[in-house]
């Protein structure tokens, strides 16, 4: 595991989490935004893609990397949600 690769892996998952957050149907409904958000199939695909780096590390047998990536995923997911709430208020 190199640090740069790990940062890239977390960045990749972050990008997908941002997409998931933007298209989240429940979030859009509560904000009364136009459009229905993503359909279930697309969301499943995005979730699967966002988990890909973790699966990759697990297949490579790098336990430390799996934990760092998963911890990063949790923190980033929370921060993405917080920032989305911040921005939508302007």
């Amino acid at each position: 595991m190199t640090i740069l690769l790990m940062l890239a892996a977390i960045a990749f998952s972050t990008a997908l989490l941002v997409l998931l957050c933007r298209g989240d149907p429940k979030r859009r409904r509560t904000l009364r935004q136009s459009g229905k958000g993503h359909g279930p199939a697309l969301r499943r695909l995005l979730v699967a893609l966002s988990l890909l780096p973790g699966v990759g590390y697990a297949v490579a047998g790098d336990a430390a990397a799996v934990l760092i990536w998963f911890g990063g995923y949790a923190v980033v997911g929370w921060f993405v949600t917080l920032s989305a709430a911040q921005w939508q208020d302007g």
Partner: peptide
């Protein structure tokens, strides 16, 4: 609910969202 944070909702919902998210 994992992306739902209602900042302008009533205090109960607001606090519930940020705690549960």
């Amino acid at each position: 609910d994992v992306f739902t944070l209602r900042r302008k909702a009533n205090p109960v919902l607001f606090n519930r969202d940020r705690h549960s998210v």
